[in-house]
Every structure is written in C-alpha cells, then in structure tokens.
C-alpha cells in the first residue's frame, strides 16, 4: 500500500523538491546564474472554448504562478487555442508508477462489458 501511494515525480524538476511556496525565493533568481534551469517546471492546461474541459497542453519553466500563466499565454495560446489557462507546478502532480502498469490497467482489458457499446444509439443523438 505504501508503495502504491509513493510520490512519483514527474518531469525534469529541479533537485530541490520542495514546493515554490516553501522555498526561499532568493534561491530562484529570475535571470542569470543558471536562468531557467533554476525555475520550476509547470504543467499547462488550456480550455479551448467555454464548456469544454481544460486539457493538458504541455509544460514550461517559470519563476512563479503568475509568470507561468503569462508564459503559457505566449507559448500555447498564440494561435487562438484557448479561453482559459490553468497551471500547476509539476512537482505537485502525483503520477502512477510505470512499473505497476500491469496490475493497474491490464485487469480492465477483458472486461469489455464496461464499455457502453451494447446499445444502439439513435441517429438523433450526436456528440457521443
């Protein structure tokens, strides 16, 4: 059980694995002395239009959340891709462990009855 909830770090986050709120901001100089190498990595989620979900768009480096949102605006929405942006520091994402893929996902493979594929959809119902 303990193994299952082990925190699995995602992406090329810096050595310092404390959250940006906990760390001394002077250790993350905006420029010089290593530049973006010292900035934490952020995951970017973009909502392409109202009513749709935010979808993962990619990641980027930024010194803080505000800069991350602005960077995301410049990097990921310059071709009108979005109406809303979420960012979250990559270190706060807990990911499943790839080696456990067998026990996690394979048991679902032979349970096709979990898919709603045994119904005939009327033609009038769209977007399913």
């Amino acid at each position: 059980m303990n193994n299952f909830i082990r925190k699995y770090y995602y992406g090329d986050i810096p050595e310092d694995k404390t959250g940006s709120n906990n760390s001394d901001s002077s250790q993350n100089p905006p420029l010089g002395g290593g530049g973006a190498g010292l900035w934490p990595l952020w995951e970017v989620f973009i909502r392409s239009k109202q009513g749709l979900d935010h979808k993962h768009a990619g990641s980027l480096h930024a010194a803080d959340a505000q800069m991350a949102i602005e960077n995301a605006r410049d990097v990921y929405t310059r071709r009108m891709e979005g109406v809303s942006i979420w960012v979250v520091e990559s270190k706060y994402i807990h990911a499943s462990v790839p080696e456990e893929a067998g026990e996690l996902y394979e048991p679902a493979e032979d349970k096709i009855y979990r898919h709603p594929t045994f119904y005939d959809l009327p033609d009038e119902v769209k977007h399913m």
């Binding site: 973006a36 900035w39 480096h61 930024a62 602005e70 960077n71 410049d74």
Partner: peptide, 12 residues
C-alpha cells in the same frame, strides 16, 4: 531571449 518562454513573449 534569456529563456525560451521569454524569447517567444518578446517576439510576440
């Protein structure tokens, strides 16, 4: 630009 993201920002 000093970093990729700001390179894109300033050219935008």
């Amino acid at each position: 630009g000093p970093v990729l993201e700001q390179d894109i920002a300033i050219t935008n």
